[in-house]
Design a protein around this nucleic acid. Structure first.
Length: 854
RNA sequence: GCGAAAGUGGCGGAAUUGGCAGACGCACCAGACUUAGGAUCUGGCGCCGCAAGGCGUGGGGGUUCGAGUCCCCCCUUUCGCACCA
């Protein structure tokens, strides 16, 4: 019988020592949620230094995916760490809640978009809480609620007032799948960014645009200030803005002089090559083409072909791969510099939406023009040589014109009075010449276009505009905001804006004349919502203004923004624009919203992007159910550095779970020992205790360095593991009462603190087990003592001719010459020397000795 | 085509300034404990070799006492840009 009792006692003990994340995490999750102020930031008059850490807000699709978990785990670790460092941390969360999926769900399941969205939000919020993310929910922002979107409307009115919102009929990108217009930024390789297989069509529509191009130059220039952004993102934005300096030059069409439309204006960055221009090339859709073609049916058909070729290449996303085709118009243009008549062609590689849609073709100095001229037998005339001004040609060196031509070494020829200039000088002089004579001027073009924000969809912010028969376009007066989105509505994906079919919405009164007016039935691009949401977090309850200037001044710029690189252009360029606009209407004072940006890598599985079709989706819920939130989160930080792609392996999560179990069991077994066993007698510590103390301080140093310096959370976790392994090595000494209590107590307490940013639930539980009652997040991050971290013995590597031959353990303060002496006396070293001559010796203090022999 | 990043055991990854390659984890192997349990604890684990030793960071060259790290050439992968005039 006693035996049975023993077994039972043993089992009970086993059960108590089992790490049960579900029990621990549910207990703390409930406590945390019962305390809404737990993660609340202090107001902006706080004495603490502020730290604003932000993860990109999610679209409430229904469930969190594992990429979200990684994103939020990084942000949460940072927020917790900064709290422990004593900062006043702002760490909010919200919902990018407008958008098409809600409408699709409405069609499919017959649920109102609002209901579907709010239901998803509740679900995802519960997931976030289960994962233990420390958000200040009192600042939650939900973009589909009128309290938020009324300010989108307010901003729109301000944009309109400043002439930055305008209505224009133009060719726009149309996704047939979404049944709406897309911004240029939302077209990826000719296809919709949401439907990567669906080619975007071009449609002629009347649309609202926002004048982002007013800020082209500043958006470009200020990229220089963003030192805390990944270079990659800055390059992408720079390319997207696409600034290009050049000149506009008018070529008169021969035979049309004096008539309206007698000119073709070309854009060139290389005015210095204008004497080498041997043709004009027009985009097939250039407005002058119709005139030039006239009644020539044959020519007309050919132009149609060119339009089609360009269109299909564009849809295929491969404009660059198009085979160059063109057609001669039988008309000529006059080069204003030398009065030369050059043929006018229409070519499929000329784009109407860049520059003026017309170029001067210089085959000798442009690769594309060369290809085209070669194909059609057009003249190739060299006007620049690769030689410095004033230098004679090099003997025997063939002076080939360069393709493509760049270089500082450049000398103009065949260019009348400009002969002998360098190309830089020529650009200056020729631009001035053109300007003086009234046929040209310097200019700057951008690839960046104005932002088309109209969407023919229901689930978005209504654009607060009215159309009155008498008064025309009339803005909704501010005091009538918000223009509410009607609730009950029949949604289909056909027939344009769903709101247009809701008479109660459409029919309104003109605020100017009191007569009947129609409401604008398009809604805003959802990127409007995300362009300024992070300002709203600073005071989400504010009822009479979008934000409070003083409060924003305290919190901005965002100290650390974390999200996927896929937003490098869209969201991050729109929100930079929005910030500059808000500044210019005096609402805020900062020029840029984000000080430091971090783009985390993707989570992949089996080397491939996760997708439903591949069936390799990892469910966060399943991970939490099997291993707990702490293990799931910590694994996402441990498996790879945060900027790299992470290949998700469940066995890895299990490994982290096992480690957290080791920590749990150690503390459970030894928390008591730290109180009951004897402290050291004040004399020198035992080597074992000293080793633990040293390793602890080294670990704190390593984790602190890696955390703030490099963001290598994986090595932070690894260092903690190493230290815990060391603790296990002295456990028998602890059990035997041979380990000083104060060292044990310090070790346990600090391990828990070091774990707090990564595994907050376990840290909270063990903090309580250790008898601590303070809020862990307000407890200071542990300091290390450099003296205590110091090694007393150093192991030198001893090399002979760079090859490792032996190791040598010496006291840390051992002088170099003594280290060398002992190295040379080493048995293995002497064997390797074998009577050969020592040529040189190198001692790297604290590291190695290298003996060079011959 | 242009630009950027990356390439290290069976796998994920360490190596911060040119100084002991492979920390930490996974997988695997062995042992201990055990009502056999996918629990826990301990140890081993780059490759070849019985060993001594040799080889080893995509490939080839170079600089250096010493190279994963610096330089040159090449290969592969990922990302971005791509008739932007």
């Amino acid at each position: 019988m006693p035996e049975t009792q023993n077994v039972t006692a043993n089992q009970t003990e086993q059960r108590e020592l089992r790490y049960d994340p579900q029990r621990i995490e549910e207990k703390w999750s409930a406590r945390w949620q019962a305390d809404p102020d737990l993660y609340a930031a202090e107001p902006h008059d706080s004495k603490r230094k502020k730290y604003y850490v932000l993860e990109m807000l999610p679209y409430p699709s229904g469930v969190l995916h594992i990429g979200h978990v990684r994103n939020y785990s990084i942000g949460d670790a940072l927020a917790r760490y900064m709290w422990m460092r004593g900062y006043n941390v702002l760490h909010p969360m919200g919902w990018d809640a407008f958008g098409l999926p809600a409408e699709n769900a409405a069609i499919k399941n017959n649920v109102p978009p609002r209901e579907w969205t709010l239901h998803n939000i509740a679900n995802m919020k519960a997931q976030m809480n289960r994962l233990g993310f420390a958000y200040d929910w009192s600042r939650e922002v939900t973009s589909c609620l009128p309290e938020y979107y009324r300010w989108n409307q307010w901003f729109f009115l301000k944009l309109y007032e400043k002439g930055l919102a305008y209505r224009k009929k133009s060719k726009v990108n149309w996704c047939p799948e979404c049944a709406t217009v897309l911004a240029n930024e939302q077209v990826v390789e000719g296809c919709c960014w949401r439907h990567e297989e669906t080619p975007v069509e071009q449609r002629e529509l009347e649309q609202w645009f926002v004048r982002t191009t007013n800020y082209s130059d500043e958006l470009l220039r200020d990229l220089e200030k963003l030192a805390g952004w990944p270079e990659k993102v800055r390059v992408m934005q720079r390319n997207w803005i696409g600034r290009s300096e050049g000149a506009l030059i008018d070529f008169t069409i021969d035979g049309l002089t004096g008539r309206a439309g007698d000119k073709i204006t070309v854009f060139t960055t290389r005015i210095d090559t204008i004497y080498g221009a041997t043709s004009i090339q027009l985009a097939p859709e250039h407005p002058v083409v119709a005139d030039l073609v006239g009644n020539d049916h044959h020519l007309h058909a050919k132009v149609e072909d060119l339009v089609r070729e360009q269109g299909s290449a564009r849809e295929a996303g491969d404009i660059g791969g198009i085979e160059k085709h063109g057609v001669f118009t039988h008309r000529y243009a006059i080069n204003p510099f030398n009065q030369e008549k050059i043929p006018i062609w229409i070519a499929n590689y000329i784009l109407m939406d860049y520059g003026t849609g017309a170029i001067m073709s210089v085959p000798a100095h442009d690769e594309r023009d060369h290809e085209f001229a070669h194909k059609y037998g057009l003249e190739i005339r060299v006007v620049i040589l690769p030689r410095r001004v004033g230098e004679p040609p090099e003997e025997g060196k063939e002076e080939k014109p360069l393709l493509p031509y760049t270089e500082k070494e450049s000398l103009l020829i065949n260019s009348d009075e400009f002969d002998g200039l360098s190309n830089q000088d020529a650009i200056e002089k020729m631009s001035a010449y053109a300007e003086q004579h009234g046929f040209g001027k310097k200019t700057v073009t951008y690839r960046l276009k104005d932002w088309g924000i109209s969407r023919q969809r229901y689930w978005g912010t209504p654009i607060p505009m009215l159309y009155c028969e008498k008064c025309g376009i009339v803005p909704v007066p501010e005091d009538q905001l918000p223009v509410l989105l009607p609730d009950k509505i029949d949604i289909t994906l056909q027939g344009g804006s769903p709101l247009a079919r809701v008479p109660e919405f459409v029919n309104a009164t003109c605020p100017k004349c009191g007569g009947p007016a129609r409401r604008e039935t398009d809604t805003m691009d959802t990127f409007v919502d995300s362009s300024w949401y992070f300002y709203r977090y600073t005071n989400a309850q504010l009822a009479d203004r979008p934000l409070d200037t003083k409060t924003v001044e305290y919190w901005f710029p965002i100290d650390q923004y974390i999200g996927g690189v896929e937003h490098a252009i869209l969201h991050l360029i729109y929100s930079r624009f929005w910030t500059k606009f808000m500044r210019d209407i005096g609402l805020i004072h900062n020029d840029e919203p984000v000080l430091r940006l971090f783009t985390q890598g993707m989570v992949i599985k089996g080397g491939a992007k996760m997708s439903k079709s591949k069936g390799n989706i990892v469910s966060p819920d399943e991970m939490v159910a099997r291993f707990g939130a702490d293990s799931t989160r910590m694994y996402s930080l441990f498996a790879a550095p945060p900027d790299r792609d992470l290949d998700w392996q469940e066995l890895g999560v299990e490994g982290v779970h096992r480690f957290l179990g080791r920590v749990y069991r150690f503390v459970m077994r030894n928390a008591q020992a730290a109180k009951t066993t004897a402290r050291s007698d004040g004399g020198p510590l035992s080597p074992q205790a000293r080793a633990i103390q040293r390793k602890l301080h080294q670990t704190i140093r390593k984790i602190t360095d890696d955390f703030q310096g490099r963001w290598h959370f994986n090595t932070c976790v690894a260092a903690t593991m190493e230290f815990v392994n060391e603790l296990y090595g002295v456990e028998s000494a602890i059990a035997a009462g041979n380990f000083p209590a104060e060292i044990l107590a310090e070790a346990q307490k600090k391990v828990v603190l070091l774990l707090a940013p990564f595994a907050p639930y376990l840290a909270a539980e063990l903090w309580e087990v250790l008898g601590e009652t303070d809020n862990l997040l307000r407890y200071p991050w542990p300091d290390y003592d450099a003296e205590l971290a110091k090694e007393e013995e150093i192991e030198y590597a001893v090399q002979v001719n760079g090859k490792l031959r032996s190791r040598l353990s010496v006291p840390a303060d051992c002088p170099e010459d003594l280290v060398l002496e002992r190295a040379l006396a080493d048995d293995k070293v002497r064997t390797s020397l074998d009577g050969k001559q020592v040529v040189k010796t190198i001692v790297v203090p604290g590291k190695l000795v290298n003996v060079v022999i011959k």
